[in-house]
Design a protein around this nucleic acid. Sequence first.
DNA 1: CGTTGTGTTGATATTAATCAACAAGTGTGG
DNA 2: CCACACTTGTTGATTAATATCAACACAACG
Lengths: 249, 249
Amino acid sequence: MVAVRARPIVLEPLAAAEPCAHCDARSYSVCNAIEIKDLERLAAMAVSISVEPGRSFIVEGDPAEHFFNVTAGTAKLFKLLPDGRRQITGFAGTGHFLGLAVSSVYAFGAEAVDPMRVCRFSRPKLRAMLDDFPAMETRLLEVASNELVAAQEQMLLLGRKTARERLASFLIARASIPTHCVAQAPGMARTVTLPMTRGDIADYLGLTIETVSRTLTRLKADGLIEIPSNGAIVLRDRAALESVAGGLD
Amino acid sequence: MVAVRARPIVLEPLAAAEPCAHCDARSYSVCNAIEIKDLERLAAMAVSISVEPGRSFIVEGDPAEHFFNVTAGTAKLFKLLPDGRRQITGFAGTGHFLGLAVSSVYAFGAEAVDPMRVCRFSRPKLRAMLDDFPAMETRLLEVASNELVAAQEQMLLLGRKTARERLASFLIARASIPTHCVAQAPGMARTVTLPMTRGDIADYLGLTIETVSRTLTRLKADGLIEIPSNGAIVLRDRAALESVAGGLD
DNA sequence: CGTTGTGTTGATATTAATCAACAAGTGTGG
DNA sequence: CCACACTTGTTGATTAATATCAACACAACG
């Protein structure tokens, strides 16, 4: 069964708009919940910003003044303990919303993994926007619900899965992320690109760098994956990986 | 700083409505976003159900036909692996909403920890309700955002904290849950009631029963807590507990 | 070239899991 | 009222998984 997936919402100010080579619509207006003309009005309220790899654009504990929509690249979202231990709570790719919090301060930090573009709204403008476009609020609620489901899945991973199961889960999940357009081969990318470092993967999976490295080596030795280069992994036996990811064998 | 906390939303059909001894309004209509008369109309669309301890009322993977609002008692929400490993992703107390998922099947199971009452809506009726009351949708988005923040905090706990830190975090978090009314002593209950078993705590914190037991014993020996009975824990040194919970010392 | 960041691999340490025994509380039925 | 099973919780001995410490390989970059 191939899930029907909503297109990622990508808000981009008109000035920065680029036509998409693959989608039918223009890349900055990929949203199935709002009329195009409204989207343009809406996008005009925002600022488009480039973020270089390694650069933080949200700092945990800072006043939450902005709301972001990722329009290109990938961010890592994380929480820190005073002694430096870090948990990456997720990677935010194109279409992701950041900074929804009700609280007045950000509950997490965000840093670019690769060259990013984000679209930034002030929170009052976001509020005005939601009041103007109820459909947008509905869509955001859907987005938040989906993230909640993903968060629960990650809790299962962190609380109960072995290192091997965690890596398999991670690779399978990564393989189902649409890279750009949503219309795609039936949910299956055989080569997974990993823009993040082993350290990021470790902090995402609640492991150490060494364990991530060793576990990938074992998965390779077992014929489940190939590692053509850092930053890419080929899923040689997707069914077996899914089985491992689900806690079987 | 004492956070201003919104009242829990409690929807209860009129037949089951009971006046609250502590709140100014009636207990079943505690919602700061909707007019009382609308709420009554809305509550009339729902069914109130009692759930005995140990009874499941949401099964992971089943068609997601209903949407629930907890009106009394506590539920545990969990995900399972095929071999029986279980991760409790949260405990849902009075005011919590369950079953928001966009997906057509439930992403988690829910089981009553103690005698519960839940208010049940069919999902189409929920949709109609949200269309009728945009304020309700706004409120749900806030709720979902807060749960997302809590989920991230739990990921930090599961991925990076020691057993001792996990227990301390759990106790501190439990101590800040308003039992019934929200207006309360400045955020601080010294005695924490734990309706769930050690096994539930273990599955929530990603530990085993034995480790939970041992760690509580150690916290007691260190003078941070007292354990007058199963089901209750007295925080003897809240500051120290908070310090441990935050990853210090 | 050295330097730095990233990744791999090996040896050892440590935390928490597992295996096991037992204690305390609860409910049942004789 | 007491024997009994059953559930829940505690504590001890041992094991296993992963973390930690350490060395080294390799690529990117000034």
